[in-house]
Amino acid sequence: MQNLRTYTNRLKDTEMAAKDISKLSGEAHPMTGGDGPNSYANNSTYQKEVAVAAKELVDRAIVEKLDVKFLLSSSTTFQFADLGCSIGPNTFLSVENILQAVKFKYHSQGWRCSDQILEFQVFFSDHTSNDFNMLFKSLPKNRQYYAAGVPGSFYGRLFPKASIHIFHASYAIHWLSRVPKEVADRNSPAWNKGRIHYLNSTDEVKRAFEAQYAEDVECFLQARAEEIVRGGLMVFIIPGIPHGIPHSDALANVTYQLLESCLMDMVRKGIVSEEKVDSFNIPMYYMSPQELEGSIEQNGCFSIEMMEILALPNGTVSNALVSASHIRAAMEGLLKQQFGDEVLDELFDLYHKKFEEQHSSTIEAGKAINFLVVLKRN
Rank of each mutant, 00 (worst) to 15 (best):
I196Q: 04
S177Y: 01
K269H: 10
E210Q: 14
V183P: 14
L259G: 03
L221K: 08
S279V: 09
Y198P: 05
V179T: 15
A190R: 14
C219D: 10
R186D: 08
A190P: 10
T255F: 11
K181H: 10
T202K: 12
G232K: 06
I238S: 10
L263K: 04
Y286L: 15
A252Y: 01
P239I: 06
G194Q: 00
A214N: 15
E260W: 01
Y286R: 12
I237N: 13
S279E: 14
F236P: 10
V217F: 15
I245T: 15
N281G: 05
E210C: 10
T255K: 01
H197K: 07
V272N: 06
G240S: 06
M284D: 05
R178E: 12
A252K: 04
M264C: 06
P246I: 09
R224Y: 02
L259I: 02
F209Y: 15
I196Y: 02
N192G: 10
E274M: 11
V183F: 13
D185Y: 03
M264Q: 13
E218F: 12
A214C: 11
R230F: 07
G231M: 02
A190M: 11
V229E: 05
V235W: 00
T255H: 08
A250L: 02
G244W: 03
R224H: 00
V205L: 09
V183M: 13
D185M: 06
P189N: 07
S201P: 00
K276G: 05
P239G: 07
E210W: 05
V254P: 05
F220P: 02
P242G: 10
P239H: 09
Q222F: 09
Y256C: 03
P283Q: 11
D216L: 05
P239L: 01
I237K: 14
A225W: 07
R268Y: 07
M266T: 02
E275F: 11
L199H: 08
H243W: 13
A225L: 05
R207L: 14
P246W: 14
I241C: 12
S188Q: 13
I238T: 13
M287W: 04
S177T: 01
K181V: 08
V272F: 03
R207E: 15
R178L: 06
V183R: 10
V235T: 03
K276F: 07
K269L: 10
R178H: 09
E204C: 00
L251P: 05
G231A: 01
S261K: 15
R195V: 01
E204F: 01
N253T: 08
L251F: 12
I237Q: 12
R195Y: 11
N253V: 08
R268H: 09
S279N: 15
A190W: 10
S273A: 14
P242V: 08
E274A: 12
